[in-house]
Simulated scan of single mutants.
Amino acid sequence: MTFVVQLAPAEPVTEASPPPVVDAEHEAMRNEVMRKMGRNLLLFQQIERMLKLLIAKSSLAGYVHELHAKQKRQEERVEKQTMGNLVGAFLEDALTDKGRPREAPDDLAGLWFSIGFGLEVDNAYYEERKSALAAAVAERNELVHHFLPRWDLMSMESMRAADEYLDRQRANVLPEFEHLKSLVGALEDGWRQTGEFLLSGEWAKHFSLTDLRHSRPVLLLGDIAQKMGRDDGYVLLNTAGNLLRLHAPEETKALKERCGYKSLKALIVATELFDLVEEPTEKGGVRVFYRMKPGISLEFGETGEQ
């Protein structure tokens, strides 16, 4: 048996076609398109970074010893999120009540710290931000995933169109970039002021004052003033002292010893919640009266502040 194999004639060897010639003007335009593409990508990355910062630092609450670890976990949680997810989280956290400081647990076991950043906005503002950020996400995805297939780098006409497109894209996104930048600035100012407050030692005074105002003896003093005050609101200090010795003797004594107040009058002055007056007696002595200052809330110390 004989097999015959017939080979096709070899193709003639030819040189590769030279690349199309691009003149200097075309090359300059193509480079400009690439530059603007990079500029816009950087703009979107800056928006992502600002969203991550606003989300990670919008609120922080917990016992003082665990705050550093909590902050780190919040930063790690947002680091790998997509821009679309970041926008959703920002709208949910910064533009709702979630950005408000959180209340301490009822069974406190140490020093509790809470800080929150949020904006009080109406529905129109919320919808405006939602729409603008959604448009920014769409612009970013268009640039990252569809820009190169859309344009012909070898066509001068296409490059001119791409150049105009990139300018329009930047103009569309830049207002939201500036808006987020202002929010970041406000957030950083808030954290800076908080840090300065904590380092100044004023926080210790504020904490001590808050603790004093919420003690049972001081709350009893407020209750006595509200229920037993004269027409002008004043109550005889001796009367209040007798009632404290009757209803909270140990707590009043412990509070004086712990805070260093040698008299009930000194304790009342320290709370900054009450007015004091002295009135002469018929025998030439002096009687001390106190009343709650206007605008003071018994449950919260100062009106509107918990």
Rank of each mutant, 00 (worst) to 15 (best):
P294C: 01
L95W: 06
P294A: 00
V173I: 10
E120R: 14
E278F: 09
A16W: 12
A16D: 13
D211M: 13
V173K: 02
G99K: 01
L91D: 02
R192M: 10
H26D: 05
Q81M: 15
E27G: 09
N31D: 12
P149E: 04
V22I: 08
R287I: 05
H146P: 02
T252E: 06
T2Q: 15
L221M: 06
W203F: 12
W151H: 13
K130M: 05
V144L: 08
A135Q: 14
E79K: 09
E48P: 00
Q71C: 11
V33G: 00
W112S: 06
P101T: 01
G84C: 03
R287C: 10
T82D: 09
V5T: 14
R258F: 09
Q81E: 14
Y234T: 03
P249V: 02
E302F: 13
A16R: 15
V78S: 02
T271L: 05
S158W: 03
P217Q: 04
A162V: 05
P20G: 08
M1I: 13
R213M: 13
T239E: 11
D163H: 14
S58K: 00
A28P: 03
A94N: 10
M29R: 11
D275E: 13
E48V: 03
R258P: 04
G233E: 04
N242D: 13
Y125C: 08
R170S: 09
V5G: 07
K265I: 06
M292R: 04
V269E: 10
D122G: 14
L43M: 11
A161M: 07
P249L: 01
Y63V: 08
